[in-house]
Amino acid sequence: MNIIVCVKHVPDATADRQFEGDGTVDRVGVDGLLSELDEYAVEQALQLKEKADGDVEVTALCVGPEKAADAVRKALQMGVDKGIHVSDEAIAGSDYAATSLVLAKAVEKAGTETPVDLVVCGMASTDGVGSVIPAMLAERLSLPQVTMASVIESQGDQVRIKRDGDTATEVIGATMPLVLSVTDQSGEARYPSFKGIMAAKKKPVETWSLSDIGVDAGEVGLSVAWTHVEDTTERPPRSQGEVVKDEDGSGAGALTDFLASKKFI
């Protein structure tokens, strides 16, 4: 079985994330890492490999600038077998549509020898939080999408997932090949072991440019994006209001007074 897991390199959510003047995310000024939500995707891909009967190869696929190779390396340390890093200056500033195009073309190329059975994604990237790339990939690759999975079961080429929706909990079923996305409810992701970190150094990573995957530079990047950021503004920090210490039950009274003063009672 050939599994591709899509991993994104994102600015650290706990740092001061910022925008560039052109409305793109600052990917230089803030340290980047493998999107935490994609660790769950890596974990599920590895579990599928461990549970499968036959031979399974798991490949981490990342589209992003040079530094994004770190995300691939982390996935290798966690246990994936090899990495593909698609990097090209022309990709900078790409929107969802272009990113999904590059990912789809890379998945196609990755499947030239052994067809891809599963494309596993995270539920969202922690910077864009779109939760749309998996559906776009499914659309571009004409594959079924089984997305936002909290529980994944597979038997042969059949996959069943549990999806906790807004109004219902659903069980979705489909036949491979398919695009799967997993939520942070799917189970803790493993930490790289010392052995895993050492082994990762010897694992193969291929770097592909746009021409390697047959995408024209004019199809991607900021200048041809289908959406345009007009303006970004930092929200003024909230100013801290009164904080009281609860002594002998005074806290509840003060709280109630505050609620009343704001007309919530």
Binding site: R238, G241, E242, V243, D246, A254, L255, F258
Partner: peptide
């Protein structure tokens, strides 16, 4: 507490 308009430092079980 950095975000609050009003805060109580105390045990929620009694407050």
């Amino acid at each position: 507490f950095e975000l609050v308009d009003f805060g109580v430092v105390g045990d929620l079980k009694s407050v």
